[in-house]
């Protein structure tokens, strides 16, 4: 029995962390490569979930195919957003803040008008409960962790091993210098946004199967993404993984011990204290 609870807690931590990391990684990439605070990132996560829902439930095509199509469609949406809404304002923080906040409002309203604000649910990707030597865990939650893990590995390999990925890193270190080196920064910005958005779409779809979808599901996730990036430290991609794990662990275990808003407060206090000791985050360079 106890091992059952323990196993489920572990799976919950891993599942929640995977979703957090999928969203936060894109957010962090946009922050370090494009240098923008993309408030709309979590709204894009929500849109990804709804596209998957529409395809799988309303249109009725294969669920895994829906996930893939949602990922690609939102990636393309990212290309469009970058070109039209981000690129003209990259150097102007005030305008980027307004444009990304406007996007939240418009994306939420679009979903509200087209699908409605009732809570929706994507059917399980892996239905039922899996048993491993006496402990049982939900298939969906395990699947989320596996999909999240595979995607993260892919993205990290992409960043570390491909030319485009290395150029992303170069820009995140010094964007003017990278431009002088002949890196086509705009192309990299586009690729970065597309990847970031696609990852968020996967997270949204998985969340829709584990919990549910609502046009406002992004609001909490945005706060989580910012928390993770701050924890990790600005400019640290590897830190996002650790930060996501820490936050996932806190959110999945704290409710077992403390109830209600004290959970939020405890989590926030841990982060604030950490920031006071290390303002640059766990793995960040000096700010």
């Amino acid at each position: 029995m106890i091992s059952d609870v323990a196993a489920q807690t572990v799976v919950n931590v891993l599942m929640l962390s995977s979703i957090y990391i999928l969203v936060a990684l894109g957010f962090a990439l946009l922050l370090t490569v494009l240098g923008i605070l993309n408030f709309a990132h979590a709204a894009i996560y929500m849109v990804g979930g709804y596209i998957c829902y529409q395809l799988a439930v309303v249109v009725g095509i294969n669920q895994w195919a829906s996930l893939l199509i949602s990922m690609i469609a939102v990636g393309l949406l990212g290309l469009f957003l970058e070109r039209v809404f981000f690129r003209p304002f990259l150097k102007d923080m005030n305008r980027i803040v307004v444009v990304t906040l406007a996007l939240i409002i418009i994306l939420q309203a679009t979903i509200n008008v087209t699908v409605g604000s009732y809570i929706r649910r994507i059917p399980s990707f892996v239905p039922g409960v899996l048993r491993f030597s006496g402990v049982s865990v939900s298939g969906d939650r395990l699947a989320t962790f596996v999909i999240g893990g595979v995607l993260l590995l892919a993205v990290i390999l992409f960043i570390r091993k491909t030319k485009t990925g290395l150029q992303m890193l170069a820009i995140s270190q010094d964007s003017d210098g990278a431009a002088l080196q002949g890196i086509k920064t705009h192309r990299i910005f586009a690729v970065t946004t597309a990847i970031g958005c696609a990852l968020a779409a996967v997270a949204g779809s998985l969340m829709g199967a584990i919990l549910s979808l609502s046009p406002f599901m992004g609001d909490i996730m945005l706060v989580k993404a910012i928390e993770i990036v701050i924890l990790a430290g600005i400019g640290s991609i590897g830190g996002v993984l650790i930060g996501g794990l820490i936050l996932g662990a806190l959110d999945a275990t704290l409710p077992l011990f403390i109830s209600g808003s004290a959970t939020d407060l405890t989590g926030l206090c841990i982060i604030i204290i950490l920031l006071l000791i290390r303002p640059q985050g766990l793995f960040g360079r000096e700010v």
């Binding site: 605070l37 706060v223 910012i226 928390e227 990036v229 701050i230 209600g260 808003s261 004290a262 939020d264 407060l265 926030l268 206090c269 982060i271 604030i272 920031l275």
Partner: peptide, 18 residues
Amino acid sequence: MVSLFVGLAIVALMGVFQ
């Protein structure tokens, strides 16, 4: 980004002193 946490902590505090 850090100011965001301060805001959230204040709102959470309101919940704690129910």
